[in-house]
Nucleic acid binder design. Structure first.
Lengths: 370, 370
DNA sequence: GTGAAAGCGCTAACAA
DNA sequence: TTGTTAGCGCTTTCAC
């Protein structure tokens, strides 16, 4: 028995409905509901009750159109099936939800074109900001453009030199150097590194970069983390007086080389390595597989260390020693930085570097002959 | 050099801008851009060119408000860090993007309250449909409500008996039965099952369900897949003339029990099992860990089989025999069903059951004394 | 085939 | 504090 035109049962309640029910104007209802401006306690309560009664739910689309904010974040990662990105994504969604944001997810498979398409789609959907683990350090115009156009971008896991955006990373160089030092300390001299870097270049072979001819060369535009880890590896070797730092360096390209094959090549050398450093958990799996195909026991015949502490690393025997990255925190911090930007803070780009932790388990032993 | 009010450089181009530039009305521009109604080839081309020149991007928010469709899907899973859900989610995002949809992601950690909150949030965001791996088979009012209100729901991995929604699952009962049969065929009689089911009940201990008192009882409202796998296990044992099917059945509760502890209890029995069937890969990790803590070698001392083919299952030695689920396809098919519903087809709920594949590797051997 | 005008549900100036 | 008015950018009758 309200006034005149009641709302038909089927249609969801709108602000006019609530206003009518509460006996106030639309604006007052809107103010009470969205909690801004000033509303008398009495009116506020009547509106609240009316909304409750009618089962009113605000139309977020309409609100976003006005406010320009969607409370939605875009997350662009390489591959959610990679445990590292799964953890990061988990951190992102949890932190976002806690802050009242939703997350739109996109995978790139380390492909810049896919990344560009994702940025376009997400911006068309009016996300308030973007968290990106960039596929490449060059060709980042789409990121710069988004950022410049007022869609804040936070870089995750990987830096992009020229881009004035916040970033959350770990000290890849230092962590890799530390891991290799531990191998050296155990007495190893022939230490290999196996990695996958960047996408296959569009045409022709990549230019050589100090890697032996029988292995894939470092691509022109690799993801920076891989490169940093390689530099850390080289630095540790150099420190130990090993001048030919690339003798046991093997890098492949995503979707082209298989880490197990790379490792197999290494193990077939006349003087094979006695230890292998894998730059991520997927690569470590390939290394372990190859090692065992060669009848090598870990760690007695071959020591193994890898980036990323996955569930299996502590369940297999020997337990694998790893450089553990704070995956969830990486995601959570990125969300934090992003939201700070979204809320309007303008300050110089901040580059957060989180600590890694070396978990010394059972996969490092002295080299066979020692 | 255009007519009167040109669009300021900062503001994104809108339909009026394009219309003005092309010398047509807003409606014609809109028709040409969104490709509906009838527009003369000439006008169409002029509009296209104007849009191109101005860098026009449609405001999807405004469009959604009118059309009622956002081209956004909601995906609600237990935990993206679980390889099963990571694969499913990958399948979902890929299939969605291919069909022109985006995906909003939510994790529930098998918690019904979190699921309910996620549904609410996603519906407030006007997703066109929901893909849900339900945390429980009861308390699904929020799913039924969404479905009834015209937000199609597709159930993934798990069925909800009373809900008239499409579903995409695998034959858990059959696959489990088949796996256990293989253990029986190898000569095993003392075959254990380790599983985690549902969330901790709110108050008091769950009612007993045939499981020995020293193990956690099957919760009142477990996820259906776990239960189905248990029934398949029981059926296989019964077939083999084993009447006490629950002697080696151990089920725990998410966040409360540790699969490794459950397994340890089993292995400390006077007559320990000679084979263990794990209902998912995370549990298998616990089983392997416990086995090796007990100094047992796989498969010589203990055979192991699990659901889910993860990357590590084929990299560790021995390679683990598994029931492989088509994870990505599960997600892709769910998207397909959902979009079919969204586009307006109304037919009786369809229940798609995908095939699993048993991958016989190296983790099954005859029991020790055989 | 095309244009004028209405309106989706909401917020935000501005008066009162 | 409250109500009136004007849009946000788009689609969509409905005349012409």
């Amino acid at each position: 028995m309200t006034t005149n035109r009641r709302k038909p049962a089927g249609r969801p309640a709108t602000i006019p409905d609530v206003a009518r029910e509460a006996g106030v104007s639309r604006s007052t209802a809107s103010r009470a509901l969205a909690d801004y401006g000033s509303v008398s306690p009495d009116a506020r309560e009547r509106v609240r009750a009316a909304a409750e009664k009618l089962g009113y739910r605000p139309n977020l689309l309409a609100r976003s159109m006005i406010t320009g904010r969607t409370h939605t974040l875009g997350a662009i990662v390489a591959d959610i099936q990679n445990p590292f990105f799964a953890g990061v994504t988990r951190g992102i969604t949890d932190a976002a939800r806690a802050a009242g944001y939703q997350v739109l997810l996109a995978n790139t498979d380390e492909d810049v074109a896919a990344e560009r398409a994702a940025v376009k789609m997400l911006r068309d959907k009016h996300v308030d900001g973007l968290i990106v683990a960039p596929a490449a350090t060059a060709e980042t115009g789409h990121l710069a453009a988004a950022h410049a156009a007022g869609c804040p971008v936070v870089l995750l896991d990987r830096q992009v030199p020229g881009l004035p955006a916040d970033s959350v990373t770990v000290d890849n160089h230092g962590a890799a150097q530390d891991a290799v030092r531990r191998l050296l300390a155990a007495g190893h001299r022939r230490i290999a590194l196996v990695s996958l870097l960047g996408s296959a270049p569009a045409g022709g072979p990549a230019e050589a970069a100090g890697t032996p001819a029988d292995a894939a060369a470092v691509p022109a535009d690799p993801v920076s983390t891989g490169l940093e880890r390689i530099e850390g590896y080289r630095a540790a070797l150099r420190e130990a007086g090993i001048t030919d730092t690339d003798a046991y360096l093997r890098t492949g390209t995503f979707h082209r080389e298989d880490p197990a094959d790379l490792t197999a090549g290494l193990l077939s050398l006349p003087e094979p390595p006695t230890a292998v450093f894998a730059t991520d958990s997927m690569i470590a799996l390939g290394v372990l597989s190859a090692a065992r195909d060669h009848g090598l026991r870990v760690p007695d015949d071959l020591s193994v260390v890898t980036f990323d502490d996955t569930d299996w690393a502590r369940a297999v025997r020997p337990r694998i020693s790893v450089v553990a990255q704070p995956v969830q925190e990486l995601g959570a911090r990125a969300v934090q930085s992003l939201i700070t930007r979204i809320e309007g803070t303008t300050h110089a780009p901040e580059h957060l570097v989180l600590d890694t932790e070396f978990l010394d388990r059972e996969s490092i032993a002295p080299p066979p002959g020692a």
